[in-house]
Amino acid sequence: MLTERYLQIFVTLADEQHFGDAARVIGITQPPLSQGLRRLEAMVGAKLFERGLGRVELTPAGVALLPYARRALSAIDEFHDAAIAQDPDGPEIRLGLAPEVPASVGAAVAAACGEAVHGSRVTVTSAPTSSLVGQVSSGRLGLAVVLHPAVLDGLQAGPVTLLRSWALVPTSLHPDDGQPLPLRKLDGLPVAVRPRAEAPAARDLFLDTLGLHRPGGGTVVVTDDRAGLAMAAAGQAIVVTPDDSLQAAGVGRHRLIDDPLPVRLRLVWPQPRTPNALPPEVMAQLTEALAEP
């Protein structure tokens, strides 16, 4: 059966000419993208793209079918818009949250979304900053809370909100005395950091600042805060996080003197007239929700 997703894969791949880029724009991984394309080509009975090293190009059949796919997709979008207008449950607000956003802060922004637009339904997804920015640009998300600094080509963005960080330090390294610690002293264990590609500019700023204040000690890459906390509990890593709720036995919570590693967050949203864009006055309200978490 021909689905919206197949059309989306076709059109996005034609625009991006790159499997990885297209997958990122759609917000899926590469294997389902490749599989979707194969199924669509089987359905059409012709190859739509020539695959080269790292790049893809439309075949003549692809060129011929592309305008039809675009028209079909825009008709589906119109259908969605019309359906939302009929929907007794009200309009949908799609919110994206970067994984570094503490649970309570994400919850506050989501709650503010519900209050800002009467009768709306709020759906929330979590994804790395680099993926969220693409999803907001394409209009798949109405807004997102992302790490700053990030490349925000053409997006609207609110002010930078700074969240103070905690250092979660194994008690084997420092007693759980609640005392603020200088970052310089925390060189006995590596600091847990999430993968760089998720948000290169923000991650580099973190790593550069870490390197300035704490020349030794190194870092260890973890997939998420759960893994980081588990490594701290095992006495293997230090976690730097603004999240008040992360805790574990054998891990002490300390402020860092002068707060050299705050988490910087920004609300981003698409240009007006993009699908799923919210009115400017609503966005002004929501940037306040992030500013006063």
């Binding site: 790159h18 990885g20 880029d21 790049r55 490349v151 500019a201």
Partner: peptide, 16 residues
């Protein structure tokens, strides 16, 4: 090629 160049800028944290 433009995708590789774009990825180079992405990795450096810049729009190019």
């Amino acid at each position: 090629m433009s995708a590789r160049i774009r990825a180079t800028f992405d990795d450096a944290g810049a729009r190019g």
